[in-house]
């Protein structure tokens, strides 16, 4: 009897403990006590030359409230451009990846501020809850709520759906896809995904080498390859051919294939890994592709493909 009781206690303990959901989030690997943005000297994926620096007057850091099913948190947002022109400008909403904070991703937002010329488009980005100095703890529903909070902020400043482009990188492809497929405050008119993952389950199957259900180890869904089927907006996809984190073959290609909307463009970047597509493409080419996509006259060629 004692053995049965002890066995039961062990089983209950073992089956009540762990899931892998939290492993997706990697906030604040390099913690900060304030945002330094252009003056950040910590680890970043790439740095832009001094000639591409932005004027301090065009860098706006602020807080906003994000409501995830009643869980209201103060999160940080960053707008690069002239806030007074949001009512007439086209804006790229950038949803960053799973690491660190706005300081880490600042060069990426800065590069987008040069698409089509300096401050041709406004650029909005934000730290999800639990990232950087934003309050709270990361969660899948929190990613979507926080991206929507950024949309609400833009909407309050006069942005309309037809002038909103959404850009997701890596983990940020989840809110970008979700909010394009199931719009909330605004409906993005175009979607750009860089290094998207198909789903949490594909991560798991890639790692184990067998076709086990993802629910064996996590509750997380993040189902971009399914959500993209409901996206009708024009779609631009970047992926590094040598991406050793989110495989282009098992993740990106599946998302691209599953898209059924009006028009799609795929940029499989030779030599690029997970985080260096703008570098390997060259900044000029990267900006050029995005600009023409936003304008609507991007042409297919040896690099930009329909299939």
């Amino acid at each position: 009897m004692r053995i049965i009781f002890l066995f039961s206690v062990v089983v209950v303990f073992l089956t009540s403990c762990l899931k892998m959901d939290d492993f997706l989030y990697n906030p604040n690997e390099h913690p900060i006590d304030s945002y330094r943005l252009q003056n950040y000297t910590g680890e970043v994926e790439f740095r832009l030359p001094d000639s591409m620096a932005l004027a301090d007057s065009m860098i706006h850091l602020f807080t906003m409230m994000s409501n995830d099913q009643g869980d209201v948190k103060k999160i940080y947002g960053l707008y690069l451009g002239d806030i007074s022109k949001i009512a007439t400008d086209t804006v790229i909403l950038y949803c960053h990846g799973n690491k660190d904070h706005l300081d880490f991703y600042y060069p990426r937002a800065q590069l987008l501020a040069w698409v089509g010329g300096k401050h041709h488009y406004g650029v909005m980005t934000f730290d999800y809850r639990g990232f950087g100095l934003s309050e709270g703890k990361p969660s899948e529903s929190g990613l979507y709520a926080d991206a929507d909070a950024a949309m609400q902020w833009l909407k309050q400043k006069g942005l309309t759906s037809d002038r909103l482009m959404i850009y997701g990188f890596s983990m940020g492809t989840a809110p970008a896809t979700e909010l394009s497929a199931k719009p909330r405050s605004l409906t993005p008119s175009k979607i750009i995904l860089e290094a998207p993952f198909a789903s949490a389950e594909v991560f798991y199957q890639d790692a184990t080498g067998i076709a086990l259900p993802g629910s064996y180890v996590m509750e997380l869904k993040i189902d971009n390859a399914e959500e993209i089927k409901s996206v009708n907006q024009p779609f631009l996809w970047f992926h590094g051919i040598n991406d050793d984190f989110i495989s282009m073959k098992t993740h990106g290609e599946v998302v691209f294939k599953n898209y059924r909307g009006v028009k799609k463009y795929g940029v499989r970047t030779p030599g690029a890994n997970h985080s260096d597509i703008p570098v390997l493409l060259t900044y000029d080419k990267y900006r050029d592709i995005i600009h023409h996509f936003v304008v609507g006259d991007l042409q297919y060629d040896d690099l930009v493909k329909a299939q």
């Binding site: 990697n26 790692a207 067998i210 180890v217």
Partner: peptide, 12 residues
């Protein structure tokens, strides 16, 4: 980033 995913190898 990879180090946060090592436990995915669990069932292999």
């Amino acid at each position: 980033m990879h180090r946060y995913f090592i436990f995915l190898s669990l069932f292999l």
